[in-house]
Protein backbone atom coordinates (compact mmCIF):
# COMPACT_ATOMS: atom_id res chain seq x y z
CA UNK A 1 0.00 0.00 0.00
CA UNK A 2 1.57 3.18 -1.22
CA UNK A 3 1.31 6.26 0.99
CA UNK A 4 0.34 9.48 -0.79
CA UNK A 5 0.16 11.83 2.16
CA UNK A 6 1.67 11.46 5.57
CA UNK A 7 1.53 13.73 8.56
CA UNK A 8 4.18 13.26 11.23
CA UNK A 9 4.00 14.48 14.82
CA UNK A 10 1.82 17.43 13.95
CA UNK A 11 1.05 19.86 16.74
CA UNK A 12 -0.87 23.04 16.31
CA UNK A 13 -1.39 25.67 18.95
CA UNK A 14 -3.45 28.67 17.98
CA UNK A 15 -2.74 32.11 19.40
CA UNK A 16 -4.33 32.35 22.82
CA UNK A 17 -2.89 28.98 23.75
CA UNK A 18 -5.61 26.93 22.11
CA UNK A 19 -3.97 23.59 21.55
CA UNK A 20 -5.88 22.07 18.63
CA UNK A 21 -3.61 19.17 17.65
CA UNK A 22 -0.95 17.38 19.67
CA UNK A 23 1.60 15.03 18.16
CA UNK A 24 -0.72 13.70 15.50
CA UNK A 25 0.64 11.19 12.99
CA UNK A 26 -1.41 9.66 10.22
CA UNK A 27 -0.84 8.12 6.80
CA UNK A 28 -3.14 8.35 3.82
CA UNK A 29 -2.90 5.51 1.27
CA UNK A 30 -2.93 6.47 -2.40
CA UNK A 31 -6.13 6.00 -4.32
CA UNK A 32 -8.18 5.56 -1.16
CA UNK A 33 -10.57 7.62 0.86
CA UNK A 34 -9.65 8.38 4.43
CA UNK A 35 -12.17 10.00 6.74
CA UNK A 36 -11.28 12.21 9.64
CA UNK A 37 -14.03 11.62 12.15
CA UNK A 38 -14.42 13.34 15.46
CA UNK A 39 -16.54 15.59 17.61
CA UNK A 40 -16.99 19.25 16.75
CA UNK A 41 -14.01 21.43 17.58
CA UNK A 42 -11.52 18.57 17.74
CA UNK A 43 -9.31 19.97 15.01
CA UNK A 44 -10.41 18.26 11.79
CA UNK A 45 -10.50 21.44 9.77
CA UNK A 46 -7.18 22.46 11.30
CA UNK A 47 -5.55 19.22 10.17
CA UNK A 48 -7.02 19.55 6.68
CA UNK A 49 -5.74 23.11 6.36
CA UNK A 50 -2.30 22.05 7.51
CA UNK A 51 -2.23 19.33 4.86
CA UNK A 52 -3.39 21.83 2.24
CA UNK A 53 -0.62 24.22 3.22
CA UNK A 54 -3.01 27.00 4.22
CA UNK A 55 -1.92 26.71 7.85
CA UNK A 56 1.51 26.05 9.23
CA UNK A 57 1.81 23.48 12.00
CA UNK A 58 3.49 24.61 15.20
CA UNK A 59 5.66 21.53 14.90
CA UNK A 60 5.76 18.36 12.84
CA UNK A 61 5.63 17.92 9.09
CA UNK A 62 3.42 16.94 6.20
CA UNK A 63 4.67 15.06 3.18
CA UNK A 64 2.90 14.61 -0.13
CA UNK A 65 4.52 11.99 -2.34
CA UNK A 66 7.56 12.10 -0.10
CA UNK A 67 8.06 15.83 -0.50
CA UNK A 68 7.54 18.13 2.49
CA UNK A 69 4.68 20.61 2.21
CA UNK A 70 5.58 24.26 2.60
CA UNK A 71 2.42 25.85 1.22
CA UNK A 72 -0.53 25.24 -1.09
CA UNK A 73 0.39 23.37 -4.24
CA UNK A 74 -1.16 22.01 -7.44
CA UNK A 75 -0.97 18.45 -6.11
CA UNK A 76 -3.77 19.20 -3.62
CA UNK A 77 -7.24 20.65 -4.20
CA UNK A 78 -9.71 21.78 -1.55
CA UNK A 79 -13.48 21.41 -1.42
CA UNK A 80 -14.76 24.02 1.00
CA UNK A 81 -17.49 23.47 3.52
CA UNK A 82 -19.08 26.83 2.59
CA UNK A 83 -18.37 26.30 -1.14
CA UNK A 84 -16.22 29.45 -1.56
CA UNK A 85 -17.62 30.21 -5.02
CA UNK A 86 -17.18 33.54 -6.77
CA UNK A 87 -20.67 35.07 -6.54
CA UNK A 88 -20.05 37.34 -9.53
CA UNK A 89 -19.03 34.48 -11.84
CA UNK A 90 -21.25 31.90 -13.48
CA UNK A 91 -20.91 28.16 -12.93
CA UNK A 92 -18.66 27.67 -15.94
CA UNK A 93 -16.15 30.28 -14.81
CA UNK A 94 -16.29 29.06 -11.22
CA UNK A 95 -15.52 25.49 -12.23
CA UNK A 96 -12.76 26.69 -14.53
CA UNK A 97 -11.35 29.12 -11.97
CA UNK A 98 -8.60 26.84 -10.69
CA UNK A 99 -7.42 26.38 -14.27
CA UNK A 100 -7.79 30.10 -14.94
CA UNK A 101 -5.42 30.81 -12.06
CA UNK A 102 -2.96 28.36 -13.57
CA UNK A 103 -3.02 30.22 -16.86
CA UNK A 104 -4.81 27.59 -18.95
CA UNK A 105 -6.21 29.25 -22.13
CA UNK A 106 -9.93 30.06 -22.12
CA UNK A 107 -11.22 27.54 -24.66
CA UNK A 108 -9.19 24.71 -23.20
CA UNK A 109 -10.22 25.36 -19.62
CA UNK A 110 -13.85 25.77 -20.55
CA UNK A 111 -13.82 22.43 -22.34
CA UNK A 112 -12.38 20.77 -19.26
CA UNK A 113 -14.82 22.58 -16.96
CA UNK A 114 -17.72 21.60 -19.19
CA UNK A 115 -16.76 17.96 -18.83
CA UNK A 116 -16.67 18.19 -15.04
CA UNK A 117 -19.93 20.12 -14.89
CA UNK A 118 -21.46 17.20 -16.72
CA UNK A 119 -19.83 14.67 -14.40
CA UNK A 120 -21.34 16.26 -11.31
CA UNK A 121 -24.74 16.49 -13.00
CA UNK A 122 -25.00 20.24 -13.51
CA UNK A 123 -25.55 20.09 -17.25
CA UNK A 124 -27.45 23.14 -18.45
CA UNK A 125 -26.49 25.33 -15.50
CA UNK A 126 -23.23 26.62 -16.98
CA UNK A 127 -24.56 30.14 -17.24
CA UNK A 128 -26.26 30.23 -13.83
CA UNK A 129 -24.84 32.22 -10.96
CA UNK A 130 -24.24 30.75 -7.50
CA UNK A 131 -27.12 32.69 -5.93
CA UNK A 132 -29.47 31.00 -8.37
CA UNK A 133 -28.45 27.51 -7.24
CA UNK A 134 -29.47 25.36 -4.29
CA UNK A 135 -26.96 24.46 -1.59
CA UNK A 136 -26.45 21.00 -3.06
CA UNK A 137 -25.83 22.39 -6.52
CA UNK A 138 -23.33 24.92 -5.18
CA UNK A 139 -21.49 22.14 -3.42
CA UNK A 140 -21.26 20.27 -6.70
CA UNK A 141 -19.79 23.36 -8.34
CA UNK A 142 -17.12 23.41 -5.63
CA UNK A 143 -16.48 19.71 -6.20
CA UNK A 144 -16.25 20.13 -9.98
CA UNK A 145 -13.79 23.00 -9.52
CA UNK A 146 -11.56 20.80 -7.36
CA UNK A 147 -11.79 17.89 -9.82
CA UNK A 148 -11.04 20.10 -12.81
CA UNK A 149 -7.50 20.89 -11.68
CA UNK A 150 -6.64 17.17 -11.70
CA UNK A 151 -4.88 17.20 -8.34
CA UNK A 152 -3.78 13.90 -6.91
CA UNK A 153 -5.11 14.69 -3.48
CA UNK A 154 -8.61 15.94 -2.78
CA UNK A 155 -9.23 17.59 0.58
CA UNK A 156 -12.91 17.78 1.46
CA UNK A 157 -14.12 19.63 4.55
CA UNK A 158 -17.58 18.37 5.49
CA UNK A 159 -18.64 18.73 1.87
CA UNK A 160 -22.10 17.30 2.41
CA UNK A 161 -23.11 19.10 5.58
CA UNK A 162 -25.10 21.81 3.82
CA UNK A 163 -27.39 19.50 1.85
CA UNK A 164 -30.54 17.63 2.78
CA UNK A 165 -30.50 13.95 3.69
CA UNK A 166 -31.65 12.61 0.31
CA UNK A 167 -29.10 14.67 -1.60
CA UNK A 168 -26.50 13.67 0.90
CA UNK A 169 -27.10 9.99 0.27
CA UNK A 170 -26.92 10.58 -3.45
CA UNK A 171 -23.63 12.46 -3.01
CA UNK A 172 -22.22 9.65 -0.90
CA UNK A 173 -23.01 7.14 -3.64
CA UNK A 174 -21.48 9.44 -6.24
CA UNK A 175 -18.41 9.82 -4.08
CA UNK A 176 -17.92 6.05 -4.00
CA UNK A 177 -18.08 6.05 -7.78
CA UNK A 178 -15.58 8.89 -7.91
CA UNK A 179 -13.10 7.13 -5.64
CA UNK A 180 -13.37 4.05 -7.78
CA UNK A 181 -13.04 5.90 -11.10
CA UNK A 182 -10.43 8.50 -10.35
CA UNK A 183 -7.18 7.28 -8.96
CA UNK A 184 -7.06 10.02 -6.38
CA UNK A 185 -6.40 10.22 -2.69
CA UNK A 186 -9.39 11.59 -0.83
CA UNK A 187 -9.18 13.10 2.62
CA UNK A 188 -12.66 13.60 3.88
CA UNK A 189 -13.78 15.39 7.02
CA UNK A 190 -17.10 14.51 8.53
CA UNK A 191 -18.74 14.20 11.89
CA UNK A 192 -21.27 11.68 10.80
CA UNK A 193 -20.31 8.15 11.83
CA UNK A 194 -22.58 6.54 9.24
CA UNK A 195 -21.21 8.70 6.47
CA UNK A 196 -17.63 7.89 7.41
CA UNK A 197 -18.24 4.15 7.45
CA UNK A 198 -20.20 4.28 4.21
CA UNK A 199 -17.63 6.12 2.11
CA UNK A 200 -14.27 5.27 3.66
CA UNK A 201 -11.45 2.84 3.03
CA UNK A 202 -9.90 4.06 6.24
CA UNK A 203 -11.39 5.94 9.17
CA UNK A 204 -9.26 7.94 11.58
CA UNK A 205 -11.07 8.70 14.81
CA UNK A 206 -9.87 11.88 16.45
CA UNK A 207 -10.46 12.70 20.08
CA UNK A 208 -11.35 16.10 21.49
CA UNK A 209 -8.72 18.78 21.94
CA UNK A 210 -5.79 18.51 21.99
CA UNK A 211 -6.48 16.05 19.27
CA UNK A 212 -4.56 12.94 18.32
CA UNK A 213 -5.55 9.80 16.48
CA UNK A 214 -7.46 7.53 18.80
CA UNK A 215 -8.05 4.65 16.46
CA UNK A 216 -7.77 3.74 12.81
CA UNK A 217 -10.41 1.47 11.32
CA UNK A 218 -10.30 -0.18 7.93
CA UNK A 219 -13.59 -1.76 6.89
CA UNK A 220 -12.30 -4.58 4.72
CA UNK A 221 -15.11 -5.91 2.62
CA UNK A 222 -17.56 -3.03 2.20
CA UNK A 223 -16.00 -1.90 -1.10
CA UNK A 224 -17.00 -5.12 -2.80
CA UNK A 225 -20.65 -4.58 -1.89
CA UNK A 226 -23.06 -2.66 -4.10
CA UNK A 227 -23.77 0.94 -3.07
CA UNK A 228 -27.26 0.04 -1.90
CA UNK A 229 -26.22 -3.05 0.06
CA UNK A 230 -23.59 -1.45 2.23
CA UNK A 231 -26.01 -0.08 4.82
CA UNK A 232 -27.40 -3.58 5.45
CA UNK A 233 -24.03 -5.25 5.71
CA UNK A 234 -23.12 -6.67 9.14
CA UNK A 235 -19.63 -5.23 8.87
CA UNK A 236 -21.10 -1.77 8.27
CA UNK A 237 -23.37 -2.05 11.28
CA UNK A 238 -20.61 -3.41 13.50
CA UNK A 239 -18.21 -0.68 12.51
CA UNK A 240 -20.78 2.02 13.20
CA UNK A 241 -21.42 0.49 16.60
CA UNK A 242 -17.78 0.23 17.42
CA UNK A 243 -17.09 3.85 16.57
CA UNK A 244 -20.07 4.99 18.58
CA UNK A 245 -18.86 2.95 21.54
CA UNK A 246 -15.48 4.64 21.50
CA UNK A 247 -16.86 8.14 20.97
CA UNK A 248 -19.86 8.13 23.29
CA UNK A 249 -17.85 8.65 26.44
CA UNK A 250 -16.62 11.97 25.02
CA UNK A 251 -20.08 13.19 24.16
CA UNK A 252 -21.61 12.55 27.52
Amino acid sequence: MEIAVSTRNISKTYPGNVEALRDLSLEFPRGQLTSLLGPSGCGKTTLLKIISGLLEPTSGEVEVNGKPVTGPGPDRAFVFQDFALLPWADVLRNVAFGLELRGVPVSEREDIAQQHIKNVGLDGFEKSFPHELSGGMRQRVGLARALAVESEVLLMDEPFSAVDEQTRRKFQEDLLGLVERENKTFIFVTHSIEEAVYVSDQIAILLPRPSRVHEILRPENLRTKGVSDIRRDPEYLDTVDRIWASLRSYVE
Binding site: L54, P72, A77, Q81, A84, R102
Partner: peptide, 15 residues
Protein backbone atom coordinates in the same frame (compact mmCIF):
# COMPACT_ATOMS: atom_id res chain seq x y z
CA UNK B 1 -14.36 39.39 2.21
CA UNK B 2 -15.27 35.86 3.20
CA UNK B 3 -12.21 34.07 4.62
CA UNK B 4 -12.76 30.94 2.63
CA UNK B 5 -12.76 32.95 -0.61
CA UNK B 6 -9.27 34.15 0.27
CA UNK B 7 -8.20 30.62 1.16
CA UNK B 8 -9.72 29.33 -2.06
CA UNK B 9 -7.49 31.73 -4.01
CA UNK B 10 -4.41 30.57 -2.14
CA UNK B 11 -5.31 26.89 -2.53
CA UNK B 12 -5.68 27.13 -6.27
CA UNK B 13 -2.39 28.95 -6.55
CA UNK B 14 -3.45 32.55 -7.19
CA UNK B 15 -0.49 34.91 -7.46
Amino acid sequence: INRSLVEMGRCFGAT
